[in-house]
C-alpha cells in the first residue's frame, strides 16, 4: 500500500509572547505513517493536541520540529518546509481538510461552494454542477437552499454544505475534525458512508471523532496522542 503521510519526529509547543512568554508544550517525537485506504483515528483526552496535530498535517500550524512527508502527485514532499505555493498546490490536489465549520464567503451560493473544488481540478462546469447537486441531495439539504448563500443557514445546514464540498471529489488524503458534531442520526450515517466510500476509493484518512459509534464505524487503526505528551 502506498504511504500517503509519513510523520517524522514532530514536536509542537506554543510560546505566548504577550502572556509572559509562557511556553505550552503539546507533544514531542510523534512518528507514524498512514497508507492509502487506511483510516487512522486520533484518540486522547480533550486538550491532548489532536486538533493541533491535524492542523500540522494540513500545513496550517507549524511544528516546532520534525517533518511531514506528503505523497503528492507521486512524489514525497515535506509540507513543513515547502514554500507557500507548493503547500497550496498540495491542498488543491491531494490534501483535504473537513471541519465542522464552514468559512462563509459573502454572496457565494451553497451550490457554488460545493462545485468549486471540482472546477479547480478541471472538471467541466455541467458535470461539476450535477455532481454537486447529487451530493447536496444525499446530505438532505433542501433544494430551495441550493442557490442561496449559506450565511443565513443553520449550523447543521452549513456543516452539511461543508461536508458536501469535501466529499464531492474526495482528496487522496482527508483530514477530518469532528464532522458529525451537530448532525442528526440520518445525516451522521450519510457522513459515515461517505468516509467509507472515500476510503474504498483509496483515500488515506486521519480523523477526530467524539461520537463513539462513528469512531468505531470509521477506524481501521487508532493512535493515542497522549503517548507523545512529554512531562513539562
Amino acid at each position: 500500500m502506498t504511504t500517503m503521510i509519513h510523520v517524522e519526529n514532530v514536536a509542537k509547543h506554543f510560546t505566548l509572547h504577550n502572556q509572559g512568554g509562557v511556553r505550552l508544550p503539546v507533544f514531542d517525537n510523534v512518528n507514524f505513517s498512514v497508507a492509502a485506504g487506511e483510516a487512522l483515528v486520533l484518540a486522547g483526552a480533550s486538550g491532548a493536541g489532536k486538533s493541533s496535530l491535524l492542523r500540522i498535517l494540513y500545513g496550517n500550524y507549524r511544528p516546532s520540529a520534525g517533518h511531514i512527508h506528503i505523497t503528492h502527485a507521486g512524489r514525497q514532499i515535506d509540507i513543513v518546509s515547502a514554500v507557500p505555493r507548493t503547500v497550496l498546490d498540495i491542498r488543491r490536489r491531494t490534501l483535504g481538510f473537513v471541519s465542522q465549520f464552514l468559512r462563509v464567503i459573502p454572496r457565494i451560493s451553497a451550490l457554488d461552494i460545493v462545485r468549486d473544488p471540482l472546477l479547480a481540478r478541471g472538471v467541466d462546469a455541467v458535470e461539476a454542477g450535477e455532481r454537486a447537486k447529487a451530493m447536496l441531495a444525499r446530505l438532505n439539504l433542501p433544494e430551495r437552499l441550493w442557490n442561496l448563500a449559506p450565511a443565513t443557514f443553520s449550523g447543521g445546514e452549513q456543516q452539511r454544505v461543508n461536508i458536501a464540498r469535501s466529499f464531492v471529489d474526495p482528496s487522496p488524503i482527508l483530514l477530518i475534525d469532528e464532522p458529525t458534531a451537530s448532525l442528526d442520526a440520518a445525516n451522521r450515517d450519510v457522513v459515515v458512508a461517505l468516509i467509507a466510500e472515500a476510503r474504498a476509493k483509496g483515500s488515506a484518512i486521519v480523523g477526530i471523532f467524539h461520537d463513539e459509534a462513528v469512531r468505531e464505524a470509521v477506524a481501521t487503526r487508532y493512535l493515542d496522542i497522549t503517548d507523545f505528551r512529554k512531562a513539562a
Partner: peptide
C-alpha cells in the same frame, strides 16, 4: 492500492 487518477502536473511556473 491507489485508484486515484493522478491529476495532470500543475503548471507551477
Amino acid at each position: 492500492m491507489t485508484v486515484h487518477v493522478s491529476p495532470p502536473e500543475a503548471n507551477l511556473d
